[in-house]
């Protein structure tokens, strides 16, 4: 059977380099299979994250031939195997080791977003009535598997390192899911502008392009949120209403 070469980033914070491994390729293999084979054959301490191997958990994000992807969903037959396939860690986060990065910043950011707050139930038994038409949008946002690939490609984080002022596309998706939830009663619009840096996004759509869940991050999450920010902040009538209704 045919062999292919994988050029895998090995190293930690202090130093590192690409190292070539050659391994056998069989039908249907994905990049993660190749990494596992390399671990078993040649590099038992090669660090990588994975869980589901089916594109459902968002653990195995990496840059394959420079493209941000899930390793478990990248078939080898979609890559040019005549030259070494490069596999490297995501760049927008500090390296831990090899293919593993420190993504803990994302978990801290999430905590700063106001949590879900249900409105009063519709029925006497404490439940809500929600129509199918109203769940499509939030459900699109809730498909997110937290792979953080969108965070990885966003230039505001990757090139400008605005991690302290900007929550990144993943958390605009998260905020949008909450804001669009027909049962939610919280208001996160002020935070979006003041604390979460939505103004930094200049709609390059790079995030949307890499999302393995095909969430239309910019069109369906960020732009509607930006519109809300504009509405609330520049519409005097809305502002006045806000004072009276508390929303």
């Amino acid at each position: 059977m045919a062999k292919a070469t994988f050029s895998v980033w090995r190293g930690d914070k202090s130093a590192g380099a690409f190292k070539d491994y050659s391994t056998e390729v069989s039908e249907g293999m994905v990049v993660l299979d190749a990494v596992h084979q390399i671990q078993a054959e040649a590099a038992p301490d090669l660090a990588c994250r994975w869980n589901c191997k089916a594109g459902k958990c968002g653990s195995c994000s990496a840059e394959i031939n420079g493209m941000p992807k899930l390793m478990c969903m990248t078939r080898l037959n979609t890559l040019d195997l005549s030259k070494p396939v490069t596999i490297e860690p995501m760049k927008a986060f500090p390296l831990v080791r090899d293919l593993v990065t420190d993504v803990s910043w994302n978990f801290r950011v999430k905590k700063t977003i106001k949590k879900f707050k249900p409105r009063k139930p519709d029925a006497a038994d404490g439940t809500w009535r929600v129509h199918n038409d109203d769940i499509e949008r939030p459900q699109e946002m809730r498909k997110c598997i937290e792979c953080f690939l969108c965070q990885n490609v966003c230039h505001v984080l990757r090139d400008h390192a605005k991690h302290e002022e900007f929550i990144g596309p993943r958390f605009f998706v998260y905020t949008a899911a909450l804001e669009m939830n027909p049962i939610d009663d919280e208001n996160r619009v002020d935070d979006l502008k003041a604390k979460h840096g939505i103004g930094y996004c200049n709609i390059t759509k790079c995030c949307t392009k890499v999302c393995p869940e095909h969430i239309t991050i910019t069109d369906n999450a960020i732009i509607p949120l930006k519109e809300r920010v504009v509405d609330e902040h520049y519409d005097p009538l809305k502002k006045l209403l806000k004072v009276f209704t508390g929303k």
Binding site: R49, N51, K56, C57, G58, S59, F107
Partner: peptide, 11 residues
Amino acid sequence: KSLLGKAHTVM
């Protein structure tokens, strides 16, 4: 053992 939100239940 994994990151939060990646346990088997997610599958």
